[in-house]
Simulated scan of single mutants.
Amino acid sequence: MLVWLFVAAAHADGIAVGKAQLRQAEDGYQLAASYDINLNYTVQQALSRGIPLYFVSEFSLTRSRWYWLDEEVFHGEQTIKFSYNVLTRQYRISRGALFQNFASFEDALNILARQSSLPFSSDLMKKDGNYTAAVRLRLDTAQLPKLLQVNALTGKDWNLDSEWYRWVARVPAANGEGKAE
C-alpha cells in the first residue's frame, strides 16, 4: 500500500523544482533550475490540438539587510512557448526568436524542464555575502485563448505552478558550481 502511495505521489500532475543552483557564467553568474513537469490530461489534450502553452520562468536574487528591507540584486523572467504542429507532428520550444523542434513530447518536455536565467554581473555579489535565491516556473493562463481562460479561472487543471523555491546562495567556487542550501 505504501509503495502505491509513493508511486502516485511521484507521478502527480504539476510542476515541482528538482534542483536549483547558482553557477558561474562567462559574464558573471546565472541561476539555473531543473523541474519535474507532469502535464495533466486536459493540458496535454489542448497542446495536442495545437493550442500553444506559455510558461514563465522567474529568477530572483536578494541580499538580506539588517537595517532595511531586503535588496533585490537580480530579477529575471523568461517566457517559453511550448507548441505542437498538428500537420508536421512536431513539438516546438520557442524563446523569443529562437526555437527548437522535437519529434517527441518527452524530448520537448525535457528541454522545457531545464531553465537558466540570463547572466548577471559578478559585481552585483560580494564574496562574503549571503543571498537568497529563488526560482519558479508557471503556466501563464493569461496567454491562453479566451475560452480556455474562463476554464482556467474555474478549474484546477490549468493551475500549473511550481511555487517559489528559495535557498541560501553563496558566491560559487572556482569550479563554477554554487551551493544550494
Rank of each mutant, 00 (worst) to 15 (best):
L2G: 15
L2W: 05
W4H: 12
F6D: 13
D13V: 01
V17M: 03
K19M: 12
A20F: 03
A20G: 13
L22C: 09
A25Q: 05
E26D: 15
D27W: 14
Y29T: 02
A32W: 08
A33C: 10
S34Y: 04
Y35K: 00
Y35H: 02
I37A: 00
N38W: 00
Y41Q: 15
Y41F: 10
Q44S: 09
Q45H: 07
A46W: 02
Y54K: 05
F55N: 03
S57Q: 09
F59A: 10
F59C: 09
S60Q: 15
L61P: 01
T62I: 13
T62P: 01
R65W: 11
Y67G: 02
D70G: 14
D70W: 13
E72G: 03
V73R: 15
V73K: 14
F74W: 07
T79L: 15
T79H: 12
K81A: 14
K81C: 08
S83V: 02
R89Q: 14
R89G: 03
R92W: 00
S94T: 09
A97S: 14
A97C: 03
N101A: 10
F102N: 07
F102I: 08
A103C: 10
F105Y: 15
E106D: 06
E106V: 13
D107H: 08
D107N: 11
D107W: 06
S117A: 12
L118P: 00
L118D: 05
F120W: 03
D123V: 05
M125A: 07
K126F: 05
A133K: 03
A133N: 05
V135P: 03
R136F: 00
L144Q: 08
K146A: 15
L148C: 05
V150Y: 10
V150A: 12
D157W: 03
W158P: 00
R166F: 08
A169L: 12
R170W: 04
V171L: 09
A173V: 11
G178E: 01
G178H: 07
K179E: 05
